[in-house]
Design a binder for these strands. Structure first.
Lengths: 229, 229
DNA sequence: CAGCCAGGTTATAAAGAGGTAACAAAAAAG
DNA sequence: CTTTTTTGTTACCTCTTTATAACCTGGCTG
């Protein structure tokens, strides 16, 4: 997820930049209004952290112009905390208004609240791939390439999903049982049975990917490629 | 648009209440946490203004419980302005956090920013189309092309509308129940029945569009066209 | 070599999900 | 206040999914 930080105070921009990077975002910086618009166009960031007091083009104006064309989340970060400023910025379409000096933790929390609400936060991934096999965990459907080749039951879906989150790794039986049935929900006999049925389905699908047995320990999803060291 | 204000300080609740009413909102008040949940259930407000420091059930707990069942906008209004409090509230799913004493103008501006972002401000359009089937949700009338081909009941209308807002997507049973009956309002048996009745009507209408079952998950409205990747 | 695991296979039973239908309660219409 | 429509409830049936048990196999150990 890519952030565009707009601030003419380089030290400030650095702090914000550092904060967001640490929170796991990619960061681009612009130092004035005109540059902000340009970067916004060329870089297509996912959201903006915008100072109001900018050379060349005011923050409010930047906000207005971007809002005219895009619905991207915009968070204002400003020294001014007059009611008028806040209200005007929000009315122009900003999503939040934070007054400097700001708390990094709060900035991130507020940002994530806005992202959550805007729907641009990463939705829980519902599609997994291992080797040539793909699982659509929402539909519980498996594919080889583009072709649907089979339908899984709840438990099979759950199990394959666990495998795909840890491909080419040996997963102890206990861990698998926990992931599929939850704690105190399953036993080895049930897992054995489930593995058997899952194997039948993915073998019928005609894929390289297999569930391998690791005697005495558990199972592992082999993608056919060499396992990374 | 209906607000639920939750605050044990009656004077404060009155001020907020007055502010929102003047801004054109309908207002309901609750004075403690338990009452808040009850009112939320019975009154189905469009958003919450929530104090944190409540008798009987803390504001955070109210927030958590409501978030477990609903996506309704929640704005926290609290005297506490510790970073920890703000961050925790936002992480629990609150949309904004305003510190008392608050500015009425700013409260309204922030509220409206959240409502805008949450999409609850734009009126639901009253005409939907999916494939060759059209729904006039105001009249609860369905058409194939220009010809009216059937009349739906309230619930059927609600359900089809939900489908048409997300065509060709798998909608989990829970989500459908929520949209049709609201939180804590329906169960699978009722949904099953409702789907059965809706299917009868749209099948009788002679359309390509169908409600498909996704076993173990929910349903999906299939328009007959290829689904977008 | 006999016996005993662990794990694969097969079979069968229990549980559950979903479609259909009929009916009763509640709400709306007249 | 009666009649009609809508909604909720229950029951039944079928098909799928899941659990359980029995059996088979091959490797390992005493």
């Amino acid at each position: 997820m890519k952030a565009l930080i707009v601030d003419d105070d380089l030290a400030l921009a650095d702090i914000v930049s550092f904060t967001l990077r640490r929170a796991g975002y990619e960061v681009i910086v612009a130092n004035d209004g005109a540059m902000a618009l340009e970067r916004w166009q060329t870089e297509a960031p996912h959201f903006l952290i915008l100072d109001l007091n900018l050379p060349r083009l005011s923050g409010l104006e930047v906000c207005r112009r971007i809002r005219a064309e895009s619905d991207i989340p915009i968070i204002i970060l400003s020294v001014r905390d007059e009611d008028d400023d806040v209200v005007r910025a929000l009315q122009l379409g900003a999503d939040d208004y934070i007054v400097k000096p700001f708390s990094p933790r709060q900035l991130v929390a507020r940002l994530e609240a806005v992202l959550r609400r805007s729907g641009s936060d990463r939705p829980v991934p519902d599609r997994f791939t291992a080797g040539d096999l793909t699982l659509d965990s929402l539909r519980a459907e498996i594919y080889v390439g583009e072709n649907p080749v089979g339908h899984l039951t709840h438990l099979e879906n759950q199990l394959l999903q666990t495998f795909m989150l840890n491909p080419n790794q040996v997963l102890p039986a206990e861990a698998l049982i926990d992931h599929v049935w939850g704690p105190a929900g399953g036993d080895r006999a049930m897992l054995k049975q489930l593995v058997y049925r899952l194997r039948a389905k993915i073998e019928a699908a005609g894929t390289q990917t297999r569930v391998e047995t690791v005697a005495g320990v558990g199972y592992s999803l082999a993608t056919g490629r060499r396992e990374p060291a």
